[in-house]
Design a protein around this nucleic acid. Structure first.
Length: 805
RNA sequence: GCGCACGUGGCGGAAUGGUAGACGCGCCAGCUUGAGGGGCUGGUGGGGCGAUGCCCCGUGGAAGUUCGAGUCUUCUCGUGCGCACCA
């Protein structure tokens, strides 16, 4: 007989709820552990089987930590602002808040059906004004500290839809919806100066326990590069421009210069003869989106401006070109071209027949650009030096002569923080009729989204809020001055950049969170989520956290001590699950048919947590069979506890039990749930063969199973122990190191590294005795016959290797 | 193109430089059952032979370090992820 998952899962979920089993404890005599999931966007699709993978992992850790005597904070909430709700509102005229609420209820029901031990009193929702009051508050602090500013930035403007589109809504230069043309249009936008934190975001990666490849992705994204900025004068003009280069040592080889087409300087220096060509090129470049510009990078193009710069080293003329392979947004938006030693410059110089001058020995300028190190030539006072020394010497010179300086630049850009949308946190700023702008005072926060039945494009590129006149127009009560609210809203990243702080104190209405509580819980001890957030979300959250650290609001430099990325669960055909491929597995169906415990066990057993693995219905059934097997081990056909469970211990399970406690505990700690479960199976198999099952071991086993299969764990615990209490707070089993090994161990004997014989030996046997055993073993004698023993390697308790020839 | 990760049975996957393939799926056999399903027990990398034991081969491929390599090093092929004219 097997257990009825529907009955027991419902029973225990109700028990946990009515007994507040997972209410967060804050007992100062205990240590604190904060286990966090990346909170989901509650989409209309409902929960995906990928969600419970990470959630189960943090849930197992949370349950184990509670049993090990920690205060555990394990919360769940909703990252509920976002485009789909807005789109739904545009399509149907309904309130996105209602739609969002409905989706949240679906998600919550699904998540609850999986038996996670969340403390639902800590639930937060980014669209709740009590929450986004503090998102807005953080923004006002950023403005006060000059880390938020307004800039003109091009957006994807679609006149036909009367709205601005996100990059992902633009496909091949057309709007995803309707296929209308999209243009780049400059608009005033709020930006956050994340670049001010670039160095700290880079350096403090050393302090956190994250997968190395995620750290690398962040390092690459920040993209720090060291070099020099050099000023070039324009010939026969009082104009000059600066370039950034990582290779100032190749300055003597700079034979032309290139400006980004957008550069303002172009207007001032272009010669009359070239004006037409330059203008034509700029129009072309302007039409291309960033994506197209990089996409069509095979063939470089550019136009000569007719002007020349002067190489400060050689005093020779360098033609100034414009080309879109130079990006306005990186460095100074202009470069010195050293075609002999830069592949891009080389390609461009070849195409337009520009001079290629070698300044590092080893180059073959007729064949390809040489970017490696070497002895400098044709370079006056740095001749004979290698790269590093040459860079030092030339930087000293540039600084002494005041024509340049050492400089560090970053690939990281400031964070575009405004969206022309309705469904987001309103930016809490008022623009007054006298031309000034102010942030909304703390006591007037939150600036709530107005209720409206008319969410539709403004037609101007502003957000739909621009049309809601009652909301937009404000009058200062004291001065009577009129003003308009900023109609931009924040990106979805805003609410998720600090939510882990609010979970600590979600109902505080006087501050973001109680500093005492923040001190106890931070940093997050374990943070699990998808790798798709490896860069942006984690970088933004770290940026805000550091900013709040500078304001002395949070006590730690970094928010997330340990990070782990769960892998993707693929469809049975090994492809990403998608509706169109028809390979989507709905967790509701699995829970109904096999039970939540089975789903949890299966997702943890299918392989390493971070691997991408295909779903398998057979594997799922196997997990259910394991749980049935455990059930039958303890419960008989009539539903009674088996009388094999006894207080008498014949020691036959002693070793395997202690091994199991050790391995399972360590594997859970290391998030290696697949091998932890396999050890539980090993114990189960051994228990089937034992005559009696010592109660102590049975209890310990159930405790170790319970974090993964909590409903079954509770049911077995209550039946076997007769306890009225949840298994959750029973103290975690411990192992006895002295009982881990049998007295007799199997050792192997090798000849020249090849396995030739096995034998049983006492684990305490001496090296010499073991060696003698090996040399006298019948099999070994056969293999050693006629050979001279050169060397014998003995590894006690393991093996003997005889080297002979 | 650059960076990172990963290649192990029919499948998912285990292996502090020390018995390769734990555990599970699948498959085979025995027992249980009227049958099927389910369960319990055992077997299951490939090849060979004088077969109840023994030999050879085997972790994408090639070389190297080592008494000993799935594990370390170099090269190479393949797959996945990230970035992509970043000067």
């Amino acid at each position: 007989m097997s257990f009825n998952h529907q009955t027991i899962e419902k029973k225990w979920q109700q028990y946990w709820e009515s007994n507040n089993t997972f209410k967060t404890t804050e007992d100062d005599t205990k240590e604190h552990f904060y286990a966090l999931d990346m909170f989901p966007y509650p989409s209309g699709q409902g929960l995906h089987v990928g969600h419970p993978e990470g959630y189960t992992a943090t849930d197992i850790i949370s349950r184990m930590k509670r049993a090990q005597g920690y205060n555990v904070l394990h919360p769940m909430g909703w990252d509920a602002f976002g485009l789909p709700a807005e789109q739904y509102a545009l399509d149907t005229g309904n309130d996105p808040a209602e739609f969002t609420e409905k989706n949240i209820q679906t998600f919550k029901r699904q998540i609850k059906s999986l038996g996670f031990s969340y403390d639902w009193d800590k639930e937060i929702n980014t669209t709740d004004p009590d929450y986004y009051k503090w998102t807005q508050w953080i923004f006002t602090k950023l403005v006060e500290k000059d880390l938020a500013y307004v800039a003109e930035v091009p957006v994807n403007w679609c006149p036909a839809l009367g709205t601005v589109l996100a990059n992902e809504e633009v496909i091949d230069g057309k709007s995803e919806r309707g296929g209308h043309p999209v243009y780049r249009k400059p608009m005033k936008q709020w930006m956050l100066k994340i670049t001010a934190y670039a160095d700290r975001l880079l350096d403090d990666l050393e302090e956190v326990d994250w997968p190395e490849h995620i750290k690398d992705m962040q390092r690459n994204w920040i993209g720090k590069s060291e070099g020099a900025e050099v000023t070039f004068n324009v010939k026969d003009s009082d104009q000059s421009f600066s370039v950034f280069t990582t290779r100032p040592d190749t300055l003597f080889g700079a034979t032309y210069a290139v400006l980004a087409p957008e550069s303002k300087l172009v207007d001032a220096i272009t010669s009359p003869e070239q004006k037409e060509a330059v203008e034509a090129y700029r129009v072309e470049a302007d039409k291309k989106s960033d994506l197209e510009r990089t996409d069509l990078n095979k063939d470089k193009s550019g136009v000569f401006t007719g002007a020349y710069a002067v190489n400060p080293m050689t005093n020779e003329d360098m033609p100034i070109w414009i080309a879109d392979y130079v990006l306005a947004s990186y460095g100074t938006g202009s470069i010195m071209a050293v075609p002999a030693h830069d592949e891009r410059d080389y390609e461009f110089a070849q195409k337009y027949d520009l001079e290629i001058r070698s300044v590092v020995d080893g180059a073959e300028p007729e064949k390809e650009a040489y970017t490696g190190d070497g002895v400098h030539i044709n370079s006056d006072f740095i001749n004979g030096l290698e790269k590093e020394a040459a860079i030092e010497k030339i930087c000293d010179y540039l600084e002494k002569e005041d024509i340049g300086e050492r400089k560090i630049t970053y690939r990281l850009r400031d964070w575009l923080f405004a969206r022309q949308r309705y469904w987001g946190e309103p930016i809490p700023v008022i623009h007054w009729e006298d031309g000034t702008s102010t942030v909304v005072a703390e006591e007037d926060l939150p600036v709530t989204l107005p209720m409206t039945d008319e969410i539709k494009p403004s037609g101007t590129g502003e957000s739909p809020l621009a049309n809601i006149h009652d909301w937009v127009n404000v009058v200062d009560e004291k001065t009577g001055m009129k003003g308009k609210r900023d109609t931009n809203t924040m990106p979805q990243w805003a609410g998720s950049s600090w939510y882990f702080l609010r979970f600590i104190d979600p109902k505080n209405d006087t501050q973001l969170a109680d500093p005492e509580k923040l001190k106890k819980w931070l940093p997050v001890d374990l943070y699990i989520g998808g790798a798709e957030h490896a860069v942006l979300h984690l970088l933004y959250a770290r940026f805000w956290h550091k900013f709040l650290y500078d304001l002395a609001i949070v006590p730690t430099k970094e928010p997330f001590q340990k990070l782990y990325n769960q892998g993707m669960i693929l469809g049975e055909n090994n492809e990403k699950m998608s509706k169109s491929k028809g390979n989507v597995v709905n967790p509701d169906d699995v829970v109904e048919k096999f039970g939540a415990d089975t789903l949890r066990v299966y997702e943890m057993f299918m392989g390493p947590l971070d691997a991408a693995i295909a779903w398998s219905e057979d594997g799922l059934e196997g997990s259910r069979k394991f749980l049935d097997r455990v059930w039958r081990l303890f419960i008989d056909e009539d539903g009674k506890v088996r009388d094999r469970i006894t207080t008498f211990n014949d020691k036959s399970l002693e070793v395997v039990y202690h091994q199991t406690v050790k391995k399972v505990t360590e594997d859970y700690d290391n998030l290696q749930f697949n091998t932890g479960i396999s050890q539980l199976m090993v114990f189960t198999n051994a228990a089937y063969k034992a005559d009696g099952l010592p109660l102590e071991y049975v209890k310990g086993f159930i405790q170790m199973l319970a974090p993964i299969a909590p409903h079954l764990g509770e049911e077995l615990w209550s039946r076997i122990t007769g306890s009225q209490e949840s298994v959750s707070y029973e103290s975690w089993p411990v192992f006895d190191e002295t009982k881990l090994v049998t007295d007799e161990v199997e050792v192997v004997f090798q000849v020249n590294g090849k396995l030739r014989a096995r034998s049983l030996a006492s684990k305490s046997i001496s090296k010499d005795e073991l060696e003698q055993m090996a040399l006298n073993h019948e099999k070994m004698l056969e293999h050693l016959e006629g050979k001279t023993i050169r060397k014998v390697i003995v590894v006690p308790g393991k093996l003997v290797n005889v080297v002979a020839n």
